[in-house]
Design a protein around this nucleic acid. Structure first.
Length: 540
RNA sequence: UGCAGCGUAGCUUAAUGGUAAAGCCCCAAGCUCAUAACUUGGUCAUUGCGGGUUCAAUUCCCGCCGCUGCGACCA
């Protein structure tokens, strides 16, 4: 693809639509941060970008949770949703759409979509029979149950025999087309381990699944039979489509699909892989709609070797974490220290160590020491050096020139950790270079030209590092840019692209090593990232 | 039980059929421009255990142990 085509092809990315059973936890923050970084990266490079997140609000579980709290389901959802939005605000998440499945317009989309699938003949009514655990809200296989049909999870609850009418989706019709899809597009499900899981599952042979429930009020009625309520998943997945509507558009499929469809990337937890990698494409095939480009299943955060979860009592309160350490720190830790797609360890001491080492010491201090010298030795301006005059053999230039393409590749592959590592390599080289060149000595020797060249090369390297890191640590990057004399705010709430004092802010421009202009006034040096201190009481 | 994956220095990870790398932590030296920072060096691994194939295995095969995921409607 040419860069021009790239710029004009819209990029749409989604997080899961979080189930609003409870306040957001760190497991919701994690993929949201990742999605935000990718969205920011695409905006930076000039691609029209739509970043979708939202909430999945229907279903019996929510209905009951609300009841137990003495609220209506709607009141409950409103309250929880505010909690999500507040957290996203604190984490500097710049989403474009926050879709709630209880939105009025969503019902119209669901209805229309259901109609398409219905017309295709992929929906039929049938008896759903089986052992049903009320606590689990699901049908169990006989073999899953303990003796006397007690639930294996709720060992004191006996599953009930249910024999009720449900509407079913003919998933079995799509067995072959799905297999072909996975075959032809190996990148459809990522990472590969997740893909294998899906293949394994599909190879066993697909059965139809029910898409309606009776005895559930909190949801949309089945269009052809209002006694039934549409099953939450069928409803929730379609939220991704409703979200694509412009704020003032009428809720029709045609409108929703007109600009931002098909979706490029669905970021999801590995726990909801099947719904996205199997059910969802089959539903879209049935409705005769194009499929997303890729489904990426990320890992879970673990702590003390156990998955974080309320039942484990080892959850980390994301709000407390941001309050204590700041949004950039949280974003950086999750994206740099955890390989996206794998389970990752959360460890607070490690968190503090890594942030201090990478952002405060290596990057922040590199800028600080260099900037101070620029003030002492070069009158507080970008040294009078033309980047062209620097030898291609200069280690920082040689690395910097190649860095961008590598980082782009990493971002595109959602390999945040690789992107950070590559950038940090340049930063470490910068520190080493200063020590070797010892500009303070050169200055004392009166070798002004050499001093200026060394400082220029390092400042420019820091600038490039900050630029490439800006999707991950927008505040730090902004601080660096501002101290380098740019009026660019990477974290500007309403910017789709960075804005600047001049027009020379295109990606092609800033991604290139050698942008820094001689004579540009430099700001006063200030730490761009304050060192963190480990606090005694980790979150509970 | 079946299928899949994983198990590498204190920690988080990397690597290749041929003398096991990086970052963090720890120790020492150097330097002084800097947010006791940076640079250099060092400590620390017979690569889960036991076999096998091979001139050579961490990398291939088998068994065992441990952990994780999946095995249909849990966001």
């Amino acid at each position: 693809m040419t860069s021009e085509a790239l710029e004009n092809t819209p990029f749409t990315i989604t997080t899961p639509l979080y189930y609003v059973n409870d306040l957001p936890h760190i497991g919701s923050a994690y993929p949201t941060i990742a999605a935000d970084a990718i969205a920011r990266f695409n905006r930076l490079r000039g691609t029209p970008t739509l970043f979708v997140t939202g909430s999945d609000e229907h279903g019996q579980k929510i209905q009951r949770t609300a009841e137990s709290l003495g609220r209506t389901p709607k009141e409950h959802c409103d309250q929880i949703v505010e909690g999500f939005k507040a957290l996203w605000e604190r984490l500097d998440i710049r989403y474009d759409r926050f879709i709630r499945t209880t939105d009025e317009r969503h019902e119209a989309i669901v209805k229309e979509f259901f109609g398409r699938v219905w017309d295709r003949g992929d929906i039929y009514i049938n008896q759903q029979k089986g052992w049903y655990c009320v606590s689990c809200e699901e049908f169990k296989e006989e073999r899953e149950l303990l003796e006397d049909h007690y639930c294996a999870i709720h060992v004191n609850k006996r599953a009930e025999w249910r024999d009720e009418e449900n509407y079913f989706f003919r998933l079995s019709n799509y067995q072959e087309r799905l297999e072909k899809l996975y075959q032809e597009r190996p990148e459809f499900i990522l990472p590969e381990s997740r893909r294998n899981e899906v293949l394994n599952f599909v190879n066993q042979g697909l059965r139809d699944f029910s898409i309606s429930r009776i005895n559930v009020d909190w949801g949309f009625p089945v269009p052809v039979n209002p006694n039934h309520t549409i099953y939450v998943w069928f409803d929730a997945l379609l939220g991704y489509i409703t979200a694509l509507l412009e704020p003032d558009q009428a809720p029709t499929l045609a409108n929703a699909l007109s600009r931002w469809y098909p979706i490029n990337t669905h970021l999801i937890g590995k726990d909801i892989l099947r719904f996205h990698a199997v059910y969802w494409p089959a539903m879209l095939m049935s409705a005769d709609l194009p499929l997303p480009d890729r489904i990426f299943g990320h890992g879970f955060l673990v702590r003390d070797g156990v998955k974080m979860g309320k039942s484990m009592g080892n959850v980390i309160d994301p709000i407390a974490l941001v309050e204590r350490y700041g949004s950039d720190a949280v974003r950086y830790y999750f994206l740099k220290e955890i390989e996206f797609g794998r389970d990752g360890v959360f460890d607070e001491a490690r968190f503090v160590n890594i942030l201090n080492a990478d952002l405060a010491n290596d990057l922040g201090n590199l800028l600080n020491r260099t900037l101070r010298m620029a003030h002492k030795y070069c009158g507080g301006e970008v040294p009078n050096v033309s980047s062209d005059s620097i030898s291609v053999g200069n280690p920082l230039k040689a690395t910097g020139v190649k860095l961008c393409d590598r980082v782009i590749g990493a971002y595109d592959a959602l390999a945040f950790s690789v992107a950070c590592t590559e950038i940090l390599t340049l930063v470490r080289m910068g520190n080493k270079y200063i020590d070797e060149q010892a500009p303070w000595t050169l200055y004392k020797q009166g070798n002004q030209a050499a001093v200026e060249q060394v400082l220029y090369v390092v400042l420019e390297s820091v600038r490039l590092a900050a630029y490439l890191l800006s999707p991950i640590v927008p505040k730090v990057s902004t601080a660096i840019y501002q101290q380098l004399g740019y009026a660019i705010d990477f974290n500007n709430a309403n910017s789709t692209n960075v804005n600047s004092i001049d027009d020379a802010t295109t990606f092609a421009h800033h991604k290139t090593w050698g942008l820094l202009q001689a004579g540009q006034p430099l700001d006063d040096p200030q730490p761009v990232f304050q060192k963190l201190e480990l606090q005694d009481a980790p979150s509970s």
